[in-house]
Write a protein that binds this DNA or RNA. Structure first.
Lengths: 347, 347
DNA sequence: AATGGCTTCCAAAGCGCTTTGGGTATGGTT
DNA sequence: AACCATACCCAAAGCGCTTTGGAAGCCATT
């Protein structure tokens, strides 16, 4: 059933039916009702494509997922983020279109999305330091919103980020207050903006407390269980080993825990661990009482909100960009405790 | 730049340009080359919407992700599957559109996708036993492909599944051969088809070896770390506790390991664990040598292949459905060993 | 009775593409 | 010289919708 058929059924013009269905004022209330009923009865759904062609709007948002062929890593955060964003789109009649793209020709994808008029805007995932995408998108005039921020960038843009710096200051402070002096950082790849900010928070705290910034204790890599394990295993083996770890992800933290236990140590007792927790639905940080002491922020909520910001930006192109920064919640679990006293013996 | 402008630039008709670009034979080789060069030079990208309108094909595949509002769980497997499917779509000029949908009105979404002509076909995720979706999709004439299978279903359909039954027979056999007699099953929700099949494999093996099927040892729930932990913790506390666990997911297995270690036991020694491993990119089963003994099959590859089957089905609507069953690889890791001898003492 | 302003509706153009149904050279046959 | 394929190209219709620019009817004012 298309518009023409529906309007013939009703004995009205396509114009009137279209207007009735889209809430335009120049149609009698009674007529509108009649049209709406008929649309429902005949199960009429307008063709998105035709609508898009006619209006010039795609009613779709693009999510471009960069995936280096080197790492072949899908960000585990991605599923939950998408779920959140999807809720917003569903509520607003938008579609979500996904492009998995080799990060070598990301440019091409954005340009193509623009030129084919396939989407009304895009969400930028996984921003890196000095990310060229924001300049690109500004230049080609594609509305966008960034999940995260971009350090070294002067252009204004819409984004939503968690306060990574603050979260890691807090995490480090907390460990310091427990007496830890050797605190390791198991960070994500520091080409990623979020990881950069987290390290900066970590360093800020160390400096504020007069602790040395020891490059040996700072690791930056993919956030996988295995790498978390290997890093912790190595670090626990060195002289003057750390008594505490700060992890960028719950997944890394699981690996760190494995290394701790493998060594016969007790987490929260011999070695403390704080992690960031994205509150992924399939990887919760324990039940009522958390396992890991953590800085946490729901990535799902982030998806929902950032999608809203983007839709807003599309509707009101002249407004200045929305910038949202979410504070993390700090929760105390079983993974942290006072620094062991062996340091005192060492004196 | 649109077709009209491009054709004016070239001094050709839209027809010829369109044909040249789409590989129709009735255009001179030299002309075609000229057109292709110009298209590149002017960065011409045809509008997907217009193309879709004109051809009646959407050049898009829908993925509808059911998400019960109860569980609010995003299947962790999803990201990698999508990544695989995305590669196929990119290669074939298709777009992927995602709908996150409350599973209460899934019907509506499929119908709507069909009526709005938004997609050429859909991938069905997370099939349940006796899943009504395959009847629905057959009825409304929407091409589809299922990631998994549907028990209790007589209609033919295209699918790709791992051989879940066989994998769990093999896992159980392996443990039996190591001398384990009390083998627990930490399964996914058994409303899901894959979980149902896995249990059936597990039971088949037990029966074949004359072991009792003890409902106490069979648990079915969400596949999260926490639930894995809780289940194992409980089971290790009972009389005549299991000496081995079979897990439906690496994530559950991580929880099981935590429970084992918390009890001061050693995995692979006191208690054995076999798990299914979807080979998720961010959750690898160890490095070169696996941590867990596992039945494994890449969900990413599954995504790539199933997408191909679907595209094939769309191109050749009259062919009979493709049915693909992938055998799992069985890898031996550190998590399994001979059953402890305390049972002998018990005699 | 003529005018003007509302309200309610419509015909037709247009969005950017594909495709049908020819048309015009060109060259080879009778 | 007339004819016919063949190769190459084109004008225009159509996909299903929105939207422009009226038109018709009705009432209240002059």
């Amino acid at each position: 059933m298309n518009l023409k058929q529906l309007s013939e059924q009703l004995g009205l013009s396509q114009t009137t039916v279209s207007r009735a269905l889209n809430g335009y004022p120049e149609v009698n209330a009674a007529t509108r009702l009649r049209v709406e009923d008929a649309a429902k009865a005949f199960n009429y759904h307008p063709s998105t494509r035709a609508k898009g062609l006619a209006t010039g709007r795609a009613l779709a948002i693009g999510h471009v997922i960069p995936m280096s062929t080197k790492h072949e890593m899908v960000n585990p955060v991605f599923g939950d983020f998408i779920a959140g964003a999807g809720e917003t789109y569903a509520r607003n009649g938008y579609e979500m279109i996904l492009s998995i793209v080799d990060d070598s020709n990301e440019d091409e994808i954005y340009r193509s999305l623009k030129l084919r008029r396939a989407v009304d805007g895009v969400i930028v995932h996984g921003p890196r330091i000095d990310d060229p995408r924001i300049a690109l998108l500004s230049e080609i005039g594609m509305p966008f919103a960034v999940h995260g921020q971009v350090t070294h960038n002067s252009l204004p843009y819409t984004f939503l980020d968690v306060d990574n710096h603050d979260a890691f200051v807090q995490a480090t402070d907390y460990l310091f207050d427990l007496g830890h002096q050797r605190i390791a950082l198991v960070n994500g790849l520091e080409t990623m903006d979020f990881a950069y900010r987290r390290r900066s928070g970590y360093e800020t705290s160390l400096r504020a407390h007069g602790l040395a910034i020891d490059p040996v204790l700072m690791r930056s890599s993919e956030m996988t269980e295995v790498i978390g394990y290997e890093t912790a295993r190595d670090l626990l083996g060195i002289n003057n080993a750390p008594t505490a770890f700060i992890c960028a992800s719950l997944i890394s933290a699981l690996g760190v825990r494995r290394a701790i236990e493998e060594r016969g140590l007790v987490m929260g007792n011999d070695v403390s661990v704080v992690t960031h927790d994205d509150m992924l639905s399939y990887l919760q940080n324990g039940g009522e009482t958390p396992i890991f002491t953590a800085t946490r922020s729901s990535v799902r909520t982030a998806g929902r909100q950032l999608a809203e910001s983007l839709l807003h930006a599309i509707e009101h192109p002249n407004n200045s960009p929305q910038e949202t920064i979410l504070k993390c919640e700090f929760v105390v679990g079983h993974s942290t405790g006072p620094a062991p006293r062996k340091d005192e013996h060492g004196l």
